[in-house]
Amino acid sequence: MLWYTGRRILQMIPVFFGATFLIYFMVFSLPGDPIAALYGDRPPAPGVIEQVRAQYNLDKPFIVQYFLYIGNFFQGDLGTTYSGRPVSDVMAGAFPVTFRLAMLALFFESVAGIVVGLIAGLRKGKLFDASALVVSLLLISVPTFVLGFVFRLTFGVQLGWFRTTVSGEAPWGELVLPALVLASVSFAYIVRLTRASVADNLNADFVRTATAKGLSRPRVVTVHVLRNSLVPVITFLGVDLGSLMVGAIVTEGIFNINGVGGTVFKAITLGESTTVVSFIAVMVVIFVVANLFVDLLYAALDPRIRYAK
């Protein structure tokens, strides 16, 4: 197990460097001059632009820029935005909000998704199963912004259960509604994944053997069906955690949340390479750690993986 964990951690290193390098390169290649854009229509005094360029290392070759950046990154210096604000400040504002939102969404989609999927799988072909399939298909096909506006209108405006916009601090309570919207698509996938997996395992020979032992139905389902069915679901959740952190732009927009998605989007349009790369680098780390966690959970759920190496 220790060896397995160590190997997974070692594998994170090339992933980290590869991803940051690619992102840095892509932002570098974006058309337009961010410094010129900074000053808009009024060109600054000659020499100023050169000075600013030098300050941000923009006058050096790409590869040097990258390594200077990475060097600083490991010293904890994430650089500053072109407007002079430290990137770490921007992050401190955005990440906790998005993190809370993603955690809430992950909680909703996994708990509700697994429960609904389990019931649907156990009653394959019955009314509950059919309705679950229809609802999940709807959730997958309706765009997030439509669902977001509908939820906001119904639960926020008409019923008044939730606040329609999220305040600056974004406390947990205010994030419930956006989290539900954010979770909806993944919820639908988890329902389908769990359902298929449960229905599959229900026909497994070992489930029949468990029944033949004289076990009660609830015990057969929880001990022999559910645990085996969770492996693919866990994989999905691991990948999804990453996309929840990044892909919340639309939801953040609808509910006016100052999260990661919006910040990165703004930074990309402004060509703020240090901001973009720093955010992406942190996200890569989150993504890789989440995957490591999933792999370990995997091994915990399925001993064959644990002993394979």
Binding site: A204, D205, F206, V207, R208, T209, A210, A212, K213, V223, H224, R227, N228, L301, D302, P303, R304
Partner: peptide, 16 residues
């Protein structure tokens, strides 16, 4: 009691 056919698939792989 019941003894099933295929020993490979009749024990749950995730429990000892």
């Amino acid at each position: 009691g019941y003894v099933p056919q295929d020993p490979m698939s009749n024990l749950n792989p995730v429990w000892n």
